[in-house]
Design a protein around this nucleic acid. Sequence first.
DNA 1: CCTAAAAATTGATTGAAATCAAGAAATCAG
DNA 2: CTGATTTCTTGATTTCAATCAATTTTTAGG
Lengths: 197, 197
Amino acid sequence: MPADPSERLLDFLQKRAALSREEAVAFAARWSVERQLKRGDYLCSIGKMEQHVWFIAEGLLRIYYPTDAEEVCVGFSYEDTVVSSFPSFIRQQPSSFSIQALEKCTALGITRTDLYAAIDTWPAVAKLWSGLLEQVVTGLIEREIEISTTTPEQRYRNLLRRAPYLFQRVPLKYIATYLRIKPETLSRVRRTGISAP
Amino acid sequence: MPADPSERLLDFLQKRAALSREEAVAFAARWSVERQLKRGDYLCSIGKMEQHVWFIAEGLLRIYYPTDAEEVCVGFSYEDTVVSSFPSFIRQQPSSFSIQALEKCTALGITRTDLYAAIDTWPAVAKLWSGLLEQVVTGLIEREIEISTTTPEQRYRNLLRRAPYLFQRVPLKYIATYLRIKPETLSRVRRTGISAP
DNA sequence: CCTAAAAATTGATTGAAATCAAGAAATCAG
DNA sequence: CTGATTTCTTGATTTCAATCAATTTTTAGG
């Protein structure tokens, strides 16, 4: 079903952006950094400057924020999604996040310079970038609301409905921190959730 | 110190965007909707389609999400800031938020059509818009992290440091929901916070 | 200025999820 | 395949903020 990483990126760009075939090919060529990760490797580490936006051609990663006490997962990235430590990338500050592969991954990266040049060159790329940011904005707002207006059980059910595949691929302890609850609580919520009439 | 609303917008645009004087004047002219609000009025109500992005020339508003039980405040907007019910504006869905004046306000609005036309016309406006979205993104991410990694007292202290003026202008009960705590808790936290050695 | 309503404070009690503490099950590397 | 490590589950207990319940203080409108 997928092809090689660059093919996959090309498909993605043509589906998502209003780019002509030639533009898509030219823009895809700017994604010049290929990174292979094995389980446990980092795409971005805390304290480092994020220099790329990444297209994930294969695999699954968690984005998390490490605090003194624990690691809070703020999201996941997988095939045909784009990921970066956005605040670091955008503001060129050391990253507050780490992005770690939970599976073997293949990622294609574009540098800041190349991306902003592409934005200036192709209006459709500018639109793609705005669209991506808009998507991040609406996602974050919805998530913030969900966390502050629902119970742990509701959050679990919602995630199960929205993204059942995560439960196949991600250890529950990471999902728990994503839901802002403890693994013990998630375990209990799963148990009681089964026998609802 | 300020001038009339349009003057104020012009100043804002020239400071924030890489627009020439002529461009700034032309773009400012597209902000054709002036709205006067008195305390308690709504700039945007839940269920309505957000048709504008607003520049606040004067006054203070709260952006909140009403749930069955309570109203969760997700932010404030005031002089020289830009506000909108972004998910509604961006996706053209009914707004999940209400935006209410806490003081007498003057707002200038630009319509979707006019904004996107301006984005297509002036690269600097496209950049301003991206920059605005980027700012919203980084703000939301930082906020999400803060809420899930700090105690109520820390959140209070952080806000007091970052935005002391809010405490002069906003009833504590709204600030409490912004901090995701109950007014009673905020009251207690403020009391105990004073006498720390 | 005065009164009514709204907001803030303070105290007592409750409750949901965290924490602490073992075990059971699953997974991974050799 | 097998032992070791990690992850998950289950139970007992604690804790912090929410809730409930009055006052007191502040604010706004006539």
